[in-house]
């Protein structure tokens, strides 16, 4: 089977419980089965649509504006130290 849920869950940063794995695998396989109907269509030379407005890069002037919402942002974060977001240990000591 092409849909390896354990690998995709790892890429998705989700630690699924065994019963969740089973249910979600079944659902997604059924959805992928439905999606396969697109295979009926020949699309070789069709241009893909990623965006309906066909926008190129949108630029704005690089003007400095003065806003300071740092304290407000930090005050609502789940774990902080001073003006910083605090996270668990990233690198283990040797």
């Amino acid at each position: 089977m092409e849909f390896e849920i354990e690998k995709i869950a790892q890429l998705s940063r989700l630690s699924l419980k065994p019963e969740e794995l089973k249910k979600l695998r079944k659902d997604i396989e059924s959805i992928l089965g439905y999606i396969k109907t697109l295979g009926d269509l020949k699309t070789g030379d069709i241009e893909p649509t990623s965006h309906v407005l066909d926008l190129e890069n949108v630029f704005r002037k690089d003007d400095v504006t003065r806003i300071n919402i740092r304290d407000e942002v930090i005050s609502r974060a789940p774990c902080v130290e001073g003006p910083f977001f605090k996270v668990p240990k990233v690198v283990d000591k040797e």
Binding site: I5, A9, L11, S12, L24, I28, L32
Partner: peptide
């Protein structure tokens, strides 16, 4: 559950 389903399908 629905959010997980869509995250998994999307990443796949």
């Amino acid at each position: 559950e629905e959010a997980k389903r869509r995250i998994l399908l999307g990443n796949f």
